[in-house]
Amino acid sequence: MDETDRLIINSLQGNFPISDQPYLEVAQQLGISEDELLSRLQTMLDSRTLTRFGPMYDIQKLGGSFSLCAIRVPAERFEEVTEIVNAFPEVAHNYERDHEFNMWYVLATESPEQIIQTNQAIEARTGLKVYNMPKIQEFFVGLHFQA
């Protein structure tokens, strides 16, 4: 990652234009060519420096549901439970965390009922209690990472 990559990351975390040739517009603002911008974005996606480039949808505003859920998984069952939980397509993210509550996953579904149903299915398959922690209120979202 060089200075130009940093410039691209720092200036492109939002406000990508909705126009006929948006990459050209951005490239001109950054003082590089359109081809260079496109090839650098491709390289950063290939190396996973960027996880995605495009619109970030808010599933809740689109009528869907979202919830953060936790499970206290016994250490000796961690791998098995991971496999069960990850197999559900409703599980969008799953993280292992350094705590007694060691598995934290996010469910994203098209209706609130599916959140409950999915967690019931996960409880049935794992025999473990799921702590469903949907947000009650949101104070802030979005951090601008400085590259």
Binding site: I8, I9, L12, Q13, G14, N15, F16, I18, L41, M44, R48, T49, L50, T51, R52, F53, G54, P55, M56, Y57, D58, K61, L62, V141, G142, F145, A147
Partner: peptide
């Protein structure tokens, strides 16, 4: 409408 939060790069 806020259904798209933003359009751009999502850094790892």
């Amino acid at each position: 409408k806020g259904q798209i939060r933003r359009i751009g790069a999502v850094p790892n």
